[in-house]
């Protein structure tokens, strides 16, 4: 049994079919990149896998994973009154929240150091740059020692140099901690460099396999072909944002 088996997964919003009968498998320790054009259902696919979007079909786990999730950065409210330390403390439920807890502080500083963000510990979330927030969100995902890390376009809107650093970081951490990674990306260079497997979707599954084998001119033109009906379908981002 693979780490994750997705079987005939379909998602509909009203009359709009966002995903149709997508099936693929993920082995433990793989870094899987999910690619496809805007509005192709990438975000919906990982949301359905995580149980955040209503879906038909099956999502089977070898054993239930501990999941670290890094949603799209644009979903965060920069005026939310939370410091980096407080955000990470929300998950360290065995430690005190209201008073300074040295052990918790050390654990948080350590988690931030792993993602190159130790100096941000006392900063409010709202003053962080895009790259800094991304690192903090990754630290937040990692602090519970997940077996599965799921990232939705972790580097969107970050400059090229920063982008490579973030992906390099994810790749290094995944290897060090033997984590399985599901990653939505639109950058094929990055996919070629870091992913062990690629899943291309454009409403349906277009291809899956090792990047060098499946990313051919033919599959890419199929994956990135965006007939008018797809373009006019409501985009995944607009449809599935969840706010409390």
């Amino acid at each position: 049994m693979p780490f994750l088996a997705v079987h005939e997964l379909s998602v509909r919003y009203g009359e709009t079919r966002v995903l149709e009968r997508v099936s693929f498998e993920v082995e433990q320790g793989e870094l899987v990149a999910i690619i496809g054009p805007n509005g192709s259902g990438k975000t919906t696919l990982i949301r359905a896998i995580l149980g955040l979007a209503p879906a038909a079909g099956e999502v089977l786990w070898e054993k239930p994973p501990t999941t670290g999730y890094v949603p799209q950065r644009v979903d965060f409210d920069p005026s939310f009154p939370l410091t980096v330390e407080e955000l990470l403390l929300l998950r360290l439920v065995r430690h005190r929240f209201w008073r300074h807890d040295e052990q918790a502080h050390e654990a948080i500083t350590h988690a931030l150091k792993d993602v190159g963000a130790a100096k941000l510990v006392d900063k409010p979330i709202g003053v962080l740059s895009g790259g800094e927030l991304q690192r903090v969100l990754i630290a937040n995902a990692l602090i519970a020692n997940p077996t599965l890390l799921v990232l939705d376009e972790p580097a969107s809107g970050i400059d090229i140099e920063g982008e490579e650093t973030i992906y390099g970081l994810i790749h290094r951490l995944a290897e060090e901690r033997h984590m399985t990674v599901l990653l939505v990306s639109h950058d094929l260079d990055i996919v070629f460099r870091y992913a062990s497997k690629v899943v291309c979707v454009n409403r349906k599954l277009i291809c899956q396999g090792a990047p060098s084998k499946v990313l051919t001119a033919e599959t890419l033109s199929r994956a990135y072909a965006t007939p008018a009906r797809y373009l006019h379908a409501p985009g995944e981002r607009g449809n599935h944002r969840h706010h409390g």
Binding site: G51, D75, F76, F80, H242, G244
Partner: peptide, 12 residues
């Protein structure tokens, strides 16, 4: 956590 990001809370 729910106020900050409801989906993060759900996944957790």
């Amino acid at each position: 956590k729910i106020a900050f990001h409801a989906d993060l809370a759900r996944v957790e």
